[in-house]
Design a protein around this nucleic acid. Structure first.
Lengths: 234, 234
DNA sequence: TCTAGTCATTGATTATTGTCAATTGCAGGT
DNA sequence: ACCTGCAATTGACAATAATCAATGACTAGA
């Protein structure tokens, strides 16, 4: 496992206000006065790909905002396998369940080099008591988590694996932030869709032969129409 | 579709305070003063089995608390099939996503005769602004929704169908509120686990022959140890 | 009690996926 | 350029699940 670097730790009001991803994130609606309410430091962390941001066994004291990069939420199963329940991108919140004080529901692991802001739960609770402007964003973030979970559950685990993979690729394409999107390893795709690595590999290789997807390393482009047709017909 | 009956509509403070399922529900921590803040009526509805409490296409103006009965959240897929993403029981909240104002994420359909309280979103928002006591419960309910979705996603859609069914039966047994638990139709079990009706039927019939489950109509009992072993080994 | 309708079960067959194993491709380090 | 190691792909075969079809069981009404 690689080492992570702490870039900056600051008293909330100094830098958050001018953060260039804030408009996407949990603090989108806060103003100068709100930031002055923050007592504990908000810390920025940088991770290499494959590092653990938090584990299920960690005390749930922080919520994380993703500044850049990509994060998978990994649920370990009793039989030694694992499932990936969501992928988070810039502006998304990881570990919002810490606000309930019980436990993190999954492990958060970076897929790419990733930068996050670590926000103490105590500060979010304080803001929620003393400023109305965080409340709407919190509701939106909870909604996002439930909505994503439900969509993954209903869309990505239904039908044959060919349909699931097509559906997942379309989902990645919908959420891409550049011309290409990051395509996970075949093993991770298997853990997302509930199929084996080999099945994932076979079908993606087939899509590639069909010209429905072009892959260069971990970047990919798709031809949406063929995949959309496949999703509907199966 | 059957007809539903409105039992009572009241100004919040009069009956909620003495409601016998309140301690389980969203209003668990509220006091007399909090109830006095409620302006719009909270209405109790009774449904027969198979009725729709709300549909995805409805305007998301209400959150529902389940007083008794059982409710399935049904996500319709583009290809005409459907998936069940959760089952809700007494004390659970249905439609919490209405608080984000966008849309209901699924259709809520009763599995048994069911009684609910319909709470206007405006009243929850008012309470959230004016009383701190609802905030903790709201967080807990959002957490519950995310947690349930993630558990269903990771535990119930992993492995072969024999394992999934065993896992689901254990889940039902964990959440039972009496000696027996309600076992869904084989079609619904299929829609929950992402398998066909026939496969669900075959495996449950097999479990029955093995003596791992006994079924009387829609009520069932299980022998946990055999099923637990199966979940771990697969 | 009889009957229509729905749900559950089972059989036969095909299609899909998992499993085990080998090979190929590719990136980083020397 | 040459290893080394991991990821991706492919093959062969077995296991599992879907599909199509029929039968049995049960329930609400007539």
């Amino acid at each position: 496992m690689n080492k992570s670097a702490v870039l900056q730790a600051w008293q909330g009001h100094s830098k958050c206000l001018h953060c260039n991803v804030r408009k996407l994130a949990l603090f989108a609606d806060l103003n100068q006065n709100d930031f002055d309410l923050i007592h504990q430091p908000i810390t920025e962390f940088d991770y290499d790909a494959g590092e653990v941001i938090y584990a299920m066994t960690d005390t749930p004291d922080y919520v994380y905002t993703i500044r850049s990069g990509l994060v998978k939420l990994v649920h370990d199963l009793a039989n030694g396998t694992y499932r990936i329940v969501r992928i988070l991108k810039q502006g998304d919140v990881a570990g919002i369940e810490a606000l309930n004080g019980t436990a993190y529901l999954q492990n958060a692991v970076t897929l790419l080099p990733t930068s996050v802001c670590r926000i103490p739960v105590t500060e979010i609770e304080r803001l929620n008591r003393e400023s109305p402007r965080i409340t709407k964003q919190l509701t939106a973030r909870w909604y996002q988590a439930v909505s994503d979970a439900d969509i993954w559950l209903s869309e990505l685990t239904s039908g044959h694996s060919r349909r699931r993979i097509a559906s997942f690729l379309l989902h990645l394409d919908d959420n891409k932030q550049a011309e290409q999107f990051y395509i996970p390893t075949r093993e991770d795709i298997g853990a997302i869709l509930g199929i084996t690595t080999e099945t994932a590999s076979r079908i993606i290789a087939e899509f590639r032969r069909n010209g429905w997807i072009s892959i260069d390393g971990s970047k990919a482009n798709i031809n949406r129409s063929f995949l959309q047709e496949l999703v509907l017909s199966y």
